[in-house]
């Protein structure tokens, strides 16, 4: 399960829409061991391609060092597919080098539909996981009225059953 703040998801989707039809990519860093993405870092796609993305190696060194200095790790690594579904390609799987990261895919193929899915990719094995989008703008301690079984502060995306 990936829990991620609504504002970060919005920023990722905005980045993907901005770079469409090229693929967009980036990282969300979070404190080591927390499994909580807190700091969104859009990265340059040095491939500038509709079908391929690649972090600029020098930008990556800077960002990875900065995370190290701040006791952070890449909790989420994201990229967009601009004409196909948000599911890891064989290339995505062969490159996946951060076993602890959530690989978040955004598809921008539909202009009006937000398509986000998250995966673990470890030793070439892809496992989809649910995404829980947390709306931090809602004060969790405030008195709220809602139907039993509903949670107004979160949206749960189940796996697509693939």
């Amino acid at each position: 399960m990936l829990s991620i703040d609504r504002s970060i998801v919005d920023a990722i989707v905005a980045h993907a829409r901005r770079d469409h039809p090229d693929e967009a990519c980036g990282v969300v860093a979070g404190p080591v061991g927390s499994d909580t993405p807190t700091r969104h870092i859009p990265m340059e796609n040095s491939a500038r391609s509709m079908t391929f993305y690649e972090f600029d190696s020098m930008e990556q060194l800077r960002v990875w060092r900065e995370m190290d200095d701040r006791d952070e790790e890449p909790v989420v690594i994201y990229h967009s597919h601009t004409a196909t579904e948000a599911y890891p390609s064989r290339t995505d799987v062969s490159f996946a080098g951060e076993p602890g990261a959530h690989y978040l895919l955004v598809s921008t193929r539909e202009p009006d539909t937000e398509e986000i899915r998250s995966f673990r990719i470890v030793d070439g094995v892809v496992t989809e996981e649910p995404v829980r989008i947390v709306d931090a703008a809602v004060d969790p301690h405030a008195v709220q009225s809602y139907m039993f079984g509903q949670s107004p502060a979160t949206v749960d995306y189940e796996c697509s059953g693939r």
């Binding site: 993305y53 972090f55 290339t91 080098g97 951060e98």
Partner: peptide, 20 residues
């Protein structure tokens, strides 16, 4: 010396494989 995993991928395996 610093070693990092290259972060790359993309939608189409064939195009990317050719690039690689």
């Amino acid at each position: 010396v610093t070693i990092l995993p290259a972060v790359a991928g993309g939608a189409f395996g064939f195009a990317a494989a050719a690039a690689i």
